[in-house]
Amino acid sequence: MHEMSLTEGVVRILEEQAATHGFSRIKTVWLEIGELSTVVPDSMEFCFGAVAAGNPLTKDARLEIIRVPGTAWCMDCSASVEIATRTDPCPRCGGYQVTVTAGTEMRIKEVEVE
């Protein structure tokens, strides 16, 4: 359950950004969470609710999670393919010579502030 520490990391980055950009209240936070990342979005939302409530900066903030699809390079097909989990074979050839190229990201994209 590292979503709690990740969420606390999110709030900390937001605090730094608040100081840099001069805002004091966040209305919405957009996170980009890859389908192949180690984060469970529901769990992240749950933790965010708990962590955000205790901070004046984030207490009214709404969390929006943007899922980024998993993408991999299949060596056998020499093609970029979409996969839903790390254990998926290549959807074209059924092989496992696939290397993940996108979908592992965990990023704070932007915030709506006042």
């Binding site: 990740l6 990391g9 999110v10 900390r12 980055i13 937001l14 950004q17 950009h21 805002f23 209305k27 996170l31 990201e105 965990m106 990023r107 704070i108 994209k109 932007e110 915030v111 709506e112 502030v113 006042e114």
Partner: peptide
């Protein structure tokens, strides 16, 4: 209210 681009990795620290 305004939008601020953050573009930071959650695991950045």
């Amino acid at each position: 209210s305004r939008i601020v681009q953050i573009e930071r990795d959650i695991l950045g620290h």
